[in-house]
């Protein structure tokens, strides 16, 4: 079976700066893959290329949604890519601050809904049913993520850890086959990180969603990833299972350093 995500020879230049250099990344169905590297290595830029925020200078990104043909998504707009089944979270939380928790998730359902202006004004049976369904679905997602008690709270009033989880809930609402998490554990305490760990595994198990994550928390990365890519100065310098990467001298030198060796 083809890889669900296959980014080949992706390069992204900003003026004279090569943020991502000829990166090849592939993800198979059901995998949890981590992308690690020092700050400024180009990980988030790579995310942005895949999700359509940036158009790569060269290279191609192809996806194979389960049960669908392989297709290129290079240069598509972010909303089109989301429609095709890739969803992401943001490193610096970007929730809809003044909307409620439920509405945030409902926005995630947007691309799976059909109602237009006429539907909104006339509120025919189909629209009403769709609307009720969306509320129910969104609530169900919140329950899965454990945020149902906050349902009518404004997103900005949530505690930090809950905001991070809400981002994941919102992304899941778009029905992705691949979830891209940009530093989901950033700023969380060890307890919250452990919960996140369990949640990611649960998402893969129950929702059949594959996951690509950028993360600095090594215990999280090592415990849940099937494979790890290591990026430094825009280049992929290593790839493999956690224990291979851990032993890779290039990685230790470039990134993990003495501290991790000890």
């Amino acid at each position: 079976m083809a890889a669900i995500l296959d980014a080949s020879q992706v390069t992204m230049d900003f003026g004279g700066l090569r943020a991502v250099n000829n990166a090849d990344v592939h993800i198979d169905q059901g995998e949890i893959v981590a992308l690690i590297g020092p700050n400024g290595a180009g990980k988030t830029t790579f995310f942005n290329v895949i999700t359509g925020v940036y158009k790569p200078t060269t290279g191609d990104v192809r996806i194979t949604a389960p049960g669908k043909e392989t297709e290129s998504i290079t240069g598509l707009k972010p909303n089109k890519i989301t429609e095709k089944g890739l969803a992401r979270t943001f490193q610096n939380i970007r929730l809809f601050q003044n909307m409620t928790v439920l509405e945030n998730v409902m926005i995630g359902r947007h691309c799976r809904m059909k109602a237009g202006i006429a539907g909104a004004v006339f509120r025919d049976r189909k629209t009403r049913e769709e609307e009720e369904q969306v509320v129910a679905d969104s609530y169900a997602i919140l329950k899965k993520i454990g945020l149902e008690t906050f349902v009518n709270e404004l997103a900005k009033n949530l505690p930090y850890g809950a905001q991070r989880r809400l981002e994941i809930a919102r992304a899941m609402a778009t029905e992705p086959f691949l979830l891209l998490l940009d530093e989901p554990a950033a700023g969380m305490n060890p307890h919250e990180t452990r919960e996140l760990d369990e949640m990611i595994l649960k998402i893969r198990a129950t929702e059949k969603i594959s996951i690509l994550l950028i993360e600095h928390d090594m215990s999280l990365v090592m415990s849940i990833s099937d494979r790890i890519y290591v990026m430094d100065y825009g280049l992929l310098i290593a790839e493999g299972q956690p224990k291979e990467v851990r032993a890779n001298p290039a990685v230790i030198k470039a990134y993990l350093g003495e501290e991790f060796n000890a």
Binding site: T51, P78, T82, A87, M99, H110, C111, A115
Partner: peptide, 28 residues
């Protein structure tokens, strides 16, 4: 009615954060 519809929500989301709403599948 517009306000509490799919369309209205997409407007508010756009007001709150364009980048995020595009990433959530809204055609800006």
């Amino acid at each position: 009615r517009l306000e509490h519809s799919r369309l209205g929500r997409s407007w508010v989301a756009m007001r709150e954060d364009e980048v995020a709403s595009e990433a959530m599948g809204i055609d800006i």
